[in-house]
Design a protein around this nucleic acid. Structure first.
Lengths: 128, 128
DNA sequence: TTTAAATATGCAAAGTCTTGCAAGTAAGAA
DNA sequence: TTCTTACTTGCAAGACTTTGCATATTTAAA
C-alpha cells in the first residue's frame, strides 16, 4: 500500500501551510477565541493585507472557518484538534530554545539551503 | 512577552524541515529502526544523493544522528519524541484523506500561491 | 596500488513562497 | 448617493527550496 506516500505528501502539504511564524501565531491567537482580521492584525502587529493572505491560505486548507458579522470577517479554528497538535509542538520547541543556540541552527542550515551572508547573529560556538 | 514570537519562528523552522514528503517518509522509516543511506534510498526509491541531502538537513537540525559502520553511514532518530509527534500528525491527516478531495486542496492552494496549470495527480474522484 | 562502493558536496536551473503595494468589493454611515 | 471602514485579490520582485548531475571523500576489496 504505497498509500503511505500519498499520506506523506498530504501531511507535508499541511505542515507547509503551518510552517510559517505568522500563521503559527495566528493559530495561537485563534485558539483562545475567534477574532476578526483587524484584531488579528493588531495582535500580531502586521499589515492587514498580509494577515488576510495568511488567513486565506489557512482557509483554503480548511484550517479555519470564516463568518461575517457586519463588515467584519470573523475567523475561528475549524479543527481545534489540529491546533492542539500544533501547540503541543510549541511546547516541544520551548525545550529546545536555550538548550541549543538558535543561531547555530540557522548557521548549519546554510550548509545545504544555499549560503548567504546572513548577518543574523553571533555565530561561533555551539555548532558541532 | 514577545518570546512567543521567537518560539513561533523556531517551531516554523522545524516544521519547514519536516514539511517535505521525502523527509516525512525518512522519519517514518527511521522510527522502526536505524538504517544506512543506501537502505533508505532503496526503501524510498530515491537517488542516494537526494536522500543524503535530506538527511543532512535533518542532521543540521539535530533531528537525526549519524554513526559510521565501515563504509556505511547509519542514521537514527535523535528525538523519538518529535517523531512520535509527527506521526500523530499523520494519523490526523489520514482522517482527512478520502474525506476531502486531494485535488481540491491543491486547487484551492493555487488561489494564493500563484496559479499554474498543475496537471498533477491521478485525482480519483474521492470527492466531497 | 588500483578499483569499486557508499556517501557527501557543490552548483546551476527550475519551481515555490513571501512581501509590498495598488486596486477591487461589501457594508454601514452621512 | 458618496464616503469610509474592513477586507480580499492581483501582481511583480526577491528570497528560498528542490532537483539533477558531476565531483570529491572515505573505506574496503583485489
Amino acid at each position: 500500500m504505497p498509500n503511505r506516500q500519498v499520506i506523506a505528501k498530504e501531511l507535508a502539504d499541511i505542515l507547509k501551510v503551518i510552517a510559517h511564524p505568522d500563521r503559527i501565531r495566528l493559530v495561537e491567537e485563534l485558539r483562545a477565541s475567534e477574532m476578526d482580521v483587524n484584531s488579528l492584525a493588531a495582535a500580531l502587529e502586521l499589515p492587514g493585507a498580509r494577515v488576510s493572505q495568511h488567513l486565506s491560505l489557512l482557509r483554503a486548507h480548511r484550517l479555519v472557518d470564516e463568518r461575517r458579522e457586519g463588515r467584519r470577517h470573523v475567523y475561528r479554528l475549524s479543527q481545534p484538534e489540529l491546533a492542539a497538535w500544533i501547540v503541543s509542538g510549541v511546547d516541544f520547541v520551548e525545550g529546545r530554545i536555550g538548550e541549543i543556540s538558535r543561531s547555530s541552527i540557522t548557521d548549519a542550515k546554510r550548509l545545504w539551503a544555499g549560503e548567504k551572508s546572513d548577518s543574523d547573529s553571533s555565530k561561533g560556538a555551539t555548532g558541532a
